[in-house]
Simulated scan of single mutants.
Amino acid sequence: MFWELIATLVAGVAAAGLVMLVNRIAGGRLPRWFAPVAAGAVMIATTIFNEYDWYARTSGALPETLVVAQTVEGRAIYRPWTYLWPIVERFAAVDMASARQHPGQPGLKLVDVYFFGRWSPASDVSVLADCPGLRRAVLAEGVSFESDGQIKGVEWVKVADGDPLVGTICGAR
């Protein structure tokens, strides 16, 4: 976030400097207000670009073992252009290298899922997916694993057939 602020300020100063240079070359024919307006317009454009580019930069920097399972796009009235081109505000990525299975329960997979948000720190949680049963559960306190692979104390959530998180965990995507 700090570097984006610096980049926005530098872009504004560069735009104002370029307008002043063009004005000097043109013999002072441009109006005086043109430099600050150009600086402001470029700063707004830089901010919008950073908003749209955040997802590509963040997901592109992930290790190969992290697979993006789901994105959440957002629209806002104070950003009217998002109604034409929504912005990805957050996404979930599954760490496929962390996938674990018990031989006694081949339909269950345990993975780490990371959640990334535009203006929030990344967080992670362990998710248990029941591939044949189309359900998932977040592992919390009170969950225990038996020696035969049975899991006690887990709260399952039934999901639809096309659930992106379970689909990614189970290999459908």
Score class of each variant (00 low, 15 high):
residue 131 C to T: 09
residue 144 S to A: 13
residue 119 W to V: 10
residue 124 D to V: 06
residue 90 R to A: 11
residue 120 S to F: 06
residue 98 S to W: 07
residue 97 A to W: 02
residue 106 P to G: 11
residue 114 Y to T: 06
residue 98 S to E: 05
residue 130 D to P: 14
residue 118 R to T: 10
residue 133 G to L: 06
residue 126 S to H: 13
residue 109 K to D: 00
residue 133 G to W: 12
residue 143 V to G: 09
residue 102 H to M: 01
residue 111 V to S: 00
residue 93 A to W: 01
residue 131 C to D: 04
residue 91 F to Q: 06
residue 115 F to P: 02
residue 102 H to N: 06
residue 101 Q to G: 13
residue 138 V to G: 07
residue 93 A to S: 13
residue 139 L to N: 02
residue 117 G to N: 09
residue 141 E to Y: 04
residue 94 V to M: 08
residue 105 Q to V: 02
residue 134 L to R: 11
residue 104 G to A: 08
residue 95 D to N: 12
residue 90 R to G: 10
residue 144 S to F: 02
residue 97 A to Y: 10
residue 140 A to N: 09
residue 125 V to S: 14
residue 137 A to N: 10
residue 130 D to T: 09
residue 127 V to G: 10
residue 125 V to F: 04
residue 142 G to R: 05
residue 138 V to R: 14
residue 97 A to K: 10
residue 107 G to K: 06
residue 93 A to F: 08
residue 96 M to P: 01
residue 147 S to Q: 14
residue 118 R to H: 14
residue 112 D to T: 15
residue 106 P to T: 08
residue 151 I to P: 03
residue 115 F to G: 04
residue 143 V to I: 07
residue 143 V to K: 00
residue 121 P to G: 15
residue 123 S to P: 04
residue 98 S to M: 06
residue 95 D to L: 03
residue 130 D to L: 08
residue 147 S to H: 03
residue 106 P to E: 09
residue 119 W to F: 15
residue 91 F to K: 00
residue 104 G to I: 11
residue 93 A to R: 03
residue 109 K to M: 06
residue 131 C to I: 04
residue 107 G to Q: 09
residue 149 G to N: 06
residue 103 P to Q: 00
residue 97 A to S: 13
residue 121 P to N: 14
residue 123 S to A: 14
residue 145 F to K: 05
residue 136 R to I: 14
residue 149 G to W: 07
residue 129 A to W: 03
residue 133 G to A: 15
residue 130 D to I: 03
residue 92 A to L: 12
residue 146 E to W: 08
residue 91 F to L: 09
residue 125 V to G: 12
residue 139 L to W: 04
residue 109 K to H: 07
residue 107 G to N: 15
residue 114 Y to M: 01
residue 134 L to T: 10
residue 92 A to P: 01
residue 109 K to F: 04
residue 144 S to K: 12
residue 123 S to Y: 07
residue 108 L to C: 03
residue 114 Y to C: 03
residue 96 M to F: 00
residue 94 V to C: 07
residue 111 V to N: 00
residue 111 V to L: 08
residue 149 G to M: 11
residue 142 G to F: 04
residue 92 A to D: 15
residue 122 A to H: 00
residue 105 Q to I: 01
residue 111 V to Y: 00
residue 133 G to T: 03
residue 102 H to W: 01
residue 141 E to V: 02
residue 112 D to N: 14
residue 98 S to Y: 06
residue 128 L to G: 00
residue 91 F to W: 08
residue 107 G to W: 05
residue 108 L to N: 12
residue 92 A to H: 10
residue 120 S to T: 14
residue 104 G to L: 04
residue 120 S to H: 09
residue 90 R to V: 02
residue 134 L to I: 03
residue 122 A to S: 09
residue 112 D to L: 11
residue 119 W to H: 15
residue 126 S to W: 03
residue 148 D to G: 12
residue 111 V to T: 08
residue 115 F to E: 08
residue 128 L to E: 01
residue 130 D to E: 11
residue 108 L to S: 01
residue 90 R to T: 04
residue 142 G to I: 11
residue 125 V to I: 12
residue 95 D to R: 02
residue 96 M to A: 07
residue 149 G to F: 04
